[in-house]
Design a protein around this nucleic acid. Structure first.
Lengths: 356, 356
DNA sequence: TTGAAAGCGCTAACAG
DNA sequence: CTGTTAGCGCTTTCAA
């Protein structure tokens, strides 16, 4: 509840005067520092209460901690991120730390700006979800402030990482689709195909797994990768084009649930159903379980990841300096969007050439 | 791009020394203040560049502005809020202000804590989406820092408000359902029914409109209100119970899209379809347009509201003090989740009237 | 156990 | 146009 709105003008000085003690004494009380008599503590607390005093975080930040943890996220619209935030919030509850979120401007750069902004604001630690920022830059940053990165597979020396085992997760998807009998499986990725392959990026890993799985299944010639760096709407359009081609795939594995929703949309646009085209995603966002969507996907337990990240960060703030690297196990969730492929008429015969 | 990671230790003093000028001179340069020769500006800029200097927001906050705008949101999971944030972010781009988001702890209180936390951190202004916080508390707060509230219908004197015309929007929904021929319309609200009616709250207004619309249509005895303050899962369960009763409603108007999704889920759980139970929501979240959901709802243009809020706040920060009250016009979006009621029992003849 | 005093990095008068 | 100076509210030695 609101005990009293902040007046914004009560300083530690006022409290000290009111309580008849020194500023230092008040400071000690509010920090629970060592060396305060119960009597003084009581008087100070009363004065604080009476005056509605709130310590200025800015002033504190100049000497010590701000009790603020910054969380940078790349985009607000993807429903997976709130899971991370919820986990982090939960882990932070009960600590004196306040979580603030800085959204990266999706247009401009990889979140450098947002992370900067957080650091400029003297946060005591940073959690970030920027798969593409330069590791070196991060190392230098981490030398200044505790950092935990979510969704990076590179092993860092100065900061912690929390990732989902993307290789495992993607393999589970591919195995599932192959087991169902699919051979024409396309992959939808957000990784730009012409750019240099970024090694530690989850989507790049999922792409790689897709490629190798296809190869191992003797389907190297059926590999089809679509790249839609520009978001979900794009995914829908790109896939719609694909689906109206005569040799459309029987299954699409999307690197995220969001584009997977776009794929499902495209499937509907094309007048098809899950019986015609199976769709799998990755993330297990809330809506995936809805009967109207029913998307087969991989649960990477974002809440747990967020919680872990926050815990690691608090440890770092408390002094740990050895890097830690937490890997969360993903779990395939099979729903109605993936089914065995339906044998096609004439087209199936044409295809038979390449098969045993 | 990252010009250079923040070192965290370069102060204005260092820059002054490097450039061979005074601290004040550097201060003026970074603030674009009046009275700096181009020559000095160049030298200072160079020194800043070279040293990778970043002004400490905390230190700045002690004297003046932090160039930070705080945005408090009640929950992260509701996909409507990202729209607000996107709008605000867009409006803020190009200004020197940075947006930081403070999520309210859904368990504890109405966002007082989060707003407090923001103010403690010396933000230059606050945008908040807390329909229930005490207006008086807000007025006192607004005396200290510029405030814009989103989704409040009360007219304030010290702060601005941005709302959607909930009365209009809810009326559009009710008219639509009634026009379709529905008589047994239930309403699902997040307003606790036993508590004192909170006047300015959007959901309370929608509830009121529902009641009056039913009355005006001569359906006062068909009024059925379900309250699910505890979230979406709840909505699904509560509605499922309702739908399995013998005299189930033919339509449900939910106060938000999120619970509406729960209703759709319940409809499916009960083995029913949109032909059996029409569902309408409010917000027009992204997924509502998906063919698997296809939810009739009211678009309240969250992006525009967010943008407006940010603009109003910037105006306030710039000095305006007369309160402003912006009302955004809502727009009904009819989708497949609402259809004419199917005549029950013997009267199957009316069936032909309905379209596909 | 308590208090006095010296800054933290910056801005904003005010002098030069 | 430029520099000097006095704080902003807090923490933190260091004495008392």
């Amino acid at each position: 509840m609101a005990s009293r709105p902040p007046t914004g003008s009560v300083t530690i000085e006022d409290v000290a005067r009111e309580a008849g003690v020194s500023r230092a004494a008040v400071s000690k009380v509010i920090r629970n520092a060592y060396g305060v008599s119960p009597a003084m503590k009581a008087r100070v607390t009363e004065a604080i209460e009476k005056l509605g005093y709130r310590p200025s975080v800015s002033a504190r930040g100049m000497r010590g901690a701000t009790f603020t943890v910054g969380f940078e996220i790349p985009e607000l619209t993807n429903p997976f991120f709130p899971k991370l935030l919820a986990g982090a919030t939960a882990a932070m509850a009960g600590t004196p730390y306040q979580l603030v979120i800085a959204p990266a401007d999706p247009e401009h750069g990889e979140g450098y700006r947002a992370i900067q902004a957080l650091v400029d604001r003297q946060v005591d630690g940073v959690i970030a979800v920027s798969p593409m920022v330069d590791p070196e830059w991060l190392e230098t940053l981490a030398a200044t402030v505790p950092v935990v990165m979510i969704g990076r597979h590179d092993r860092a020396s100065g900061y912690d990482t929390v990732v989902n085992d993307d290789e495992d997760g993607a393999r589970q998807v591919m195995r599932h689709l192959l087991d169902l009998g699919h051979k024409d499986i396309a992959h939808l990725t957000s990784v730009p195909l012409k750019a240099a392959p970024a090694p530690g990026v989850p989507q790049a890993i999922r792409l790689e797994v897709y490629r190798t799985a296809m190869q191992e299944a003797g389907l190297a010639d059926r590999v089809r990768v679509l790249s839609t760096p520009h978001g979900v709407l794009d995914a829908r359009e790109v896939v719609l084009r694909l689906l109206t081609e005569p040799d459309r795939p029987t299954a699409v594995f999307a690197c995220h649930d969001e584009p997977a929703l776009g794929v499902l949309h495209a499937v509907a646009d094309a007048g098809l159903t899950a019986a015609d085209v199976s769709v799998a995603g990755y993330d297990d966002i809330e809506i995936a379980a809805h009967p109207g969507i029913s998307l087969t996907t991989v649960n990477q337990d974002g809440e747990r990841m967020g919680r872990l990240a926050a815990e690691l960060l608090l440890e770092r703030i408390a002094g740990r300096s050895e890097p830690r690297h937490e890997v969360v196990r993903p779990e395939l969730v099979v729903r109605a969007s993936t089914r065995p492929p339906r044998p096609r008429g004439g087209a199936a015969r044409l295809r038979a050439v390449g098969r045993t």
